[in-house]
């Protein structure tokens, strides 16, 4: 696959002295044509800063970005036409209609009138805003505004789309529309860089995911590889109440030491939840639950799920994504 973006040792520091924040600490990665590259990390991890440096809106303190071999900070207008950015916050003017906002961008990107007309109609139709195209933007619902924000970046038909947190606050229906829209972009020959703190979003949409925290890329791989990297099997989460004298922290040791062994991959506890990862976990559940109750705990709730990127993040940082 063709390398479309190269990022080498990118660094950014904000503030000075005691207020100094190392927002991005020398990240490096490559992005290939036609892939959806996910940046997953909690708020403040450095995702948006990295994105702004890649697109040329923010100058790095050191390191290098190359888009199709060009430095976006030195390329003048060369790269402007191939980059489309969908920021977290609205990029539309609330006093204008949906159509007027799109036409405004078509004009400032110098798109010929006929092409612009066709493209605007197509985008409005694809994102499902036909009925709202004459509506003043401030009268749209939150989901409709998000959808408009998305297509505004596509008016000039960019090759690379940088999508910064596209779905926070969206209702499930709008989220699915947005996900479908993003998922289809590579089919139109576009490369997408997606930042998100929703593991499900990164998991579902990205071909590769970089997990970023405190300005550093912790891991970078396909979602599947990342998930299997922390171990095989499904996860059982058991919520317990404490009845006897035994502390919940003693449960992992007890379960792992059972004889005959249950062959559990991993057991951990957090507050009142005991999390167990094991291969072929369902037949083992009866013995697990009985053992827990033997220790003086009552089981309140139980769920079984596959490994998620959140588990990967917890495994790497010891924290949850949203904590």
């Amino acid at each position: 696959m063709k390398k479309i973006i190269e990022v080498k040792a990118l660094k950014k520091v904000f503030g000075k002295g005691e207020r100094q924040v190392n927002a991005v600490k020398g990240i490096s990665f490559d992005i290939y044509e036609g892939e959806i590259f996910g940046f997953l990390g909690p708020n403040g991890a450095g995702k948006t800063t990295s994105l702004r440096m890649i697109v040329g809106l923010l100058r790095p303190d050191s390191g290098e970005v190359k888009i199709l071999g060009e430095n976006p900070h030195k390329s003048g207008n060369k790269l402007k036409e191939i980059l489309g950015i969908i920021p977290q916050n609205p990029t539309f003017y609330e006093d204008l209609t949906v159509e007027e906002n799109l036409w405004f961008l078509a004009k400032i990107y110098n798109i010929p009138k006929m092409i612009a007309k066709e493209r605007i109609n197509s985008l409005i139709s694809r994102i499902g805003l036909e009925e709202k195209k004459k509506a003043i933007t401030k009268d749209l619902s939150g989901g409709q505004k998000r959808r408009l924000n998305l297509i505004l970046a596509l008016v000039h038909d960019p090759k690379i789309i940088l999508c910064d947190e596209p779905t926070p606050g969206l209702d499930p229906q709008s989220r699915i529309v947005v996900w479908e829209f993003i998922r289809n972009l590579p089919k139109q020959g576009k490369t997408v860089i997606l930042t998100t703190h929703y593991m499900e979003e990164a998991d579902r949409l990205s071909n590769r995911v970089a997990i970023i925290d405190n300005g550093e890329i912790l891991v970078l791989d396909t979602p599947e590889n990342l998930k299997t990297s922390i171990g095989e099997g499904d996860l059982v989460e058991i919520e317990v109440s404490h009845l006897g004298d035994t502390e919940i922290e003693s449960l992992p040791g007890y379960l792992l030491a059972l004889d005959p062994p249950l062959h559990l991959e991993e057991v951990s506890t957090s507050q009142s939840v005991c999390t167990i990862r094991a291969l072929d976990v369902v037949p083992k559940l009866t013995r697990i639950l009985a053992s827990i109750e033997n220790q003086g705990f009552s089981v309140n709730n139980l769920s079984i799920r596959g490994t998620t990127l959140e588990d990967v993040f917890i495994n790497l940082t010891g924290r949850r994504l949203r904590s």
Binding site: G56, L57, I108, Y109, H156
Partner: peptide
Amino acid sequence: KNTTFDIIRLSS
């Protein structure tokens, strides 16, 4: 938090 100007900067 208004990013309209980012678009302006990237386009003109």
